Simulated assay, not measured.
Amino acid sequence: MTVVTVEHSTAPGVLDLVRQGDEFGLSLYPPESYYALDASELDRDDVELHVARHDGHAIGIAALVDAGDDTGELKRMFVDPTARGRGAARALLDSIETAARARGIRVLRLETGPKQPEAIALYTSHGYEPIDAFGPYVGDPSSLCFAKSLS
């Protein structure tokens, strides 16, 4: 069974998933189009790191960034390729949305890329709709942005 908890970036297995996520993202997109939070940013007060574990092993991560204005952003969503297909991504997304609602976040936004059809399918099946690029993603053709109302 997959269990999702809020953890610190130094928890067992987390930094390995961060590294894997970086390697995956940079294999698809140029560095100037790769917008992941740095590992050092995962423990900021406005960031909540969610970790999916199966039998105690970290298999996925996702971060909620609270913008402080009733919006939030999903960042760093990554599931170990060997653990995909077991529901970890959906569990992480559910956990992030629950946490966002608890923080008073009414709209959750995210950015992904056109070379990640599985991610796009996950987000759209979870109720996320395409929106215009926002923040650092404006003008980057490698960025696709989505949002979901949580209210």
Rank of each mutant, 00 (worst) to 15 (best):
V107F: 03
V107E: 15
L108A: 04
L108W: 07
R109G: 11
R109E: 08
L110Q: 00
E111G: 07
E111Q: 10
T112Q: 03
T112N: 02
T112H: 01
T112F: 08
T112I: 05
T112K: 00
P114I: 04
P114L: 04
P114S: 04
K115C: 00
K115Y: 04
K115S: 10
Q116I: 04
P117Y: 09
E118I: 03
E118K: 12
E118M: 05
E118D: 15
E118T: 02
E118N: 12
E118V: 03
E118L: 06
A119L: 07
A119I: 01
A119W: 05
A119S: 13
A119P: 01
I120Y: 01
A121F: 07
A121Q: 11
A121I: 08
L122K: 11
L122A: 07
L122E: 12
L122D: 06
L122C: 02
L122F: 13
Y123E: 04
Y123R: 03
Y123W: 09
Y123Q: 03
T124R: 13
T124Y: 02
T124A: 06
T124K: 05
S125G: 12
S125R: 15
S125H: 15
S125F: 02
S125D: 09
S125E: 11
H126E: 15
G127H: 02
G127V: 07
G127A: 11
Y128F: 15
Y128R: 08
Y128T: 05
P130H: 14
P130T: 12
P130R: 15
P130C: 11
P130M: 06
I131S: 05
I131A: 03
I131E: 14
I131H: 03
I131T: 15
D132L: 10
D132I: 09
A133T: 06
A133F: 07
A133S: 14
A133W: 03
A133H: 14
G135C: 10
G135W: 14
G135M: 08
G135Q: 06
G135A: 15
G135D: 13
G135Y: 10
P136L: 08
P136W: 07
P136G: 05
Y137T: 02
Y137C: 01
V138P: 07
V138M: 03
G139E: 03
G139V: 11
D140V: 11
D140N: 14
D140W: 00
D140G: 01
P141L: 09
P141N: 03
S142N: 13
S142Y: 14
S142L: 04
S142E: 14
S143N: 03
S143Q: 05
S143C: 14
S143K: 06
L144A: 07
L144H: 09
L144Y: 01
L144I: 15
C145Q: 11
F146S: 08
F146Q: 09
F146V: 06
A147C: 11
A147H: 01
K148M: 08
K148G: 08
S149D: 14
S149K: 13
L150T: 01
L150N: 09
